[in-house]
Write a protein that binds this DNA or RNA. Sequence first.
DNA 1: TAGGTATTTAGACAAATATCTAAATATAAT
DNA 2: ATTATATTTAGATATTTGTCTAAATACCTA
Lengths: 92, 92
Amino acid sequence: MSKYLTNLVNKVFKALNDQTRREILNLLKEKDLTAGDIAEAFQITKPSISHHLDILSQAELVTYRKQGQFVIYSLNTTVLDDLMKWIITLKD
Amino acid sequence: MSKYLTNLVNKVFKALNDQTRREILNLLKEKDLTAGDIAEAFQITKPSISHHLDILSQAELVTYRKQGQFVIYSLNTTVLDDLMKWIITLKD
DNA sequence: TAGGTATTTAGACAAATATCTAAATATAAT
DNA sequence: ATTATATTTAGATATTTGTCTAAATACCTA
């Protein structure tokens, strides 16, 4: 596995090792959402959610675009394919 | 997703969020190994490896059997299927 | 430009985690 | 029985992590 992929897998597992972050991904599965929309779905503060979004972003599990004052987050499934490859490699 | 599966996925992500534990799984992919054999493949102490094996075992990623003084660990790929299901659910 | 809304950054803190050494347990061999 | 080998458990410690509040930044609107 390339060093880039090893590093990415590392970040992906780190990102997925948190219930809140996994739920954020599930929300984004339905539709793109602003940071504020995401924060409202949880009991924790906006700065905490912002931090979670940063970790998801570092793992390339989400992307974001700015739209005026808003930051809109989207699920990025590309990395999930890499993750699946990692798992399949372990299986065979 | 059932509560059992949620709990298991939680433990699996926790278990996989560590380079050493992921490498242990890769070793076990080739063949079953004793705790001692596994420990020798790393720079860290036996008690630390024992702890990692415990976490992998809790996540059902490995199984073990006793053979005399030895404890032989095996990879359990069943859980990897559950993990793949979780990922696929996120994708579609 | 001033004030309002959306989001992130900075810094602090408690809880979780990876690691270690020392001791305990279990089995084998002499 | 005693000693040696394999492994785990217990307890300590430094680092990482998730969360918070307060402050900063960015953009919009009147």
